[in-house]
């Protein structure tokens, strides 16, 4: 038991205390008196309240896209591929680079005069440069670049842990490849899909740097994190900022709960995959 103490201290200092302090801040005013005013203000202010939908409108589609793309990729690479190391390398690079570097790269590569637009125009696919940056699309693309590798690597781990004989057994019982996927592999991947969906969603929902660098922080991509940042460091109202982050946490919890409920409905069997 005593061995747990450092871990508990660590958790309390780094996680519980900041969270409790934030909760306390959100429920008080500048003088320290208890009040719900911070929350009431947030929900009453249309410009702030709207950030919930703005953020969801960015986070939900890209999470579906990331996880949805990761499933077929993981499926085709479940038994290994030639050049798998190279593929994995290119997938891990975006994780190591960090959001800011990706955003900088995208700004020049996908900008109106960037290579991508020059190529598209040279091929004749478009006449005028497509706007990939400083809008909704830019934020979504950058979240895809940084979120997809996580989803893919996590699902690859899950699907390659499934006993390969299950697929053979299903086939011998008369199932086609597609039937085997939907009836056997997909249900067994559900726990992995749920977890990678949650992680991807939380990452996308708390998006900040790419929403500023690649989006339009004043309007269409004014996400909740930007609103909280503005209250804290432009208006120096930490109470209002804390209230916004508490609302963020609440929404994330709701979404995670929904995903876990779905997982529970889909997957009733034992949680251990592999030994069969």
């Amino acid at each position: 038991m005593i061995l747990l103490v450092p871990a508990i201290i660590f958790l309390v200092l780094l996680f519980l205390y900041p969270f409790a302090y934030g909760l306390y801040l959100s429920l008080t005013n500048a003088k320290g008196d208890g009040t719900f005013a911070n929350y009431l203000r947030f929900f009453a202010d249309p410009r702030d309240f709207r950030t919930i939908w703005t953020t969801l409108w960015i986070a939900v589609p890209i999470t579906f896209i990331n996880v949805g793309l990761a499933i077929p990729f993981a499926y085709y690479m479940r038994r290994g591929l030639r050049g798998e190391k190279l593929v994995t390398f290119f997938l891990i690079v975006p994780i190591t680079l960090g959001t800011v570097l990706i955003s900088e790269g995208m700004l020049s590569y996908m900008g109106p005069k960037g290579w991508l637009n020059q190529f598209l125009m040279a091929v004749g696919l478009v006449k005028d440069p497509v706007r990939f940056t400083h809008n909704y699309l830019g934020v979504v693309i950058s979240l895809g670049l940084s979120g997809f590798p996580y989803a893919f690597l996590m699902l690859l781990g899950y699907i390659s842990g499934i006993n390969p004989d299950l697929e053979k057994a299903s086939q011998m019982l008369g199932a086609s490849k597609l039937q085997t996927f939907w009836k056997i592999l997909f249900p067994l991947m559900v726990p992995g899909i749920a977890i990678s969906f949650c992680l991807n969603f939380v990452m996308a929902f708390s998006v900040f740097p790419s929403a500023v660098l690649l989006g339009q922080p004043s309007g269409p991509t004014r996400v909740m994190a930007i609103a909280a940042y503005q209250w804290a460091f432009e208006k120096f109202n930490f109470n209002a900022a804390s209230a916004i982050s508490m609302v963020m946490a609440a929404i994330e919890l709701i979404v995670i709960t929904l995903v876990l409920v779905w997982r529970g409905r889909m997957y009733k069997g034992a949680s251990i995959v592999g030994k069969g």
């Binding site: 006993n163 057994a169 011998m172 199932a175 056997i184 067994l188 034992a270 069969g276």
Partner: peptide, 16 residues
């Protein structure tokens, strides 16, 4: 899947 053969595996391969 079209041969109408049945197969039993060493590790059972039941769908968990």
């Amino acid at each position: 899947e079209k041969r109408e053969f049945g197969m039993v595996f060493q590790n059972y391969a039941l769908f968990p």
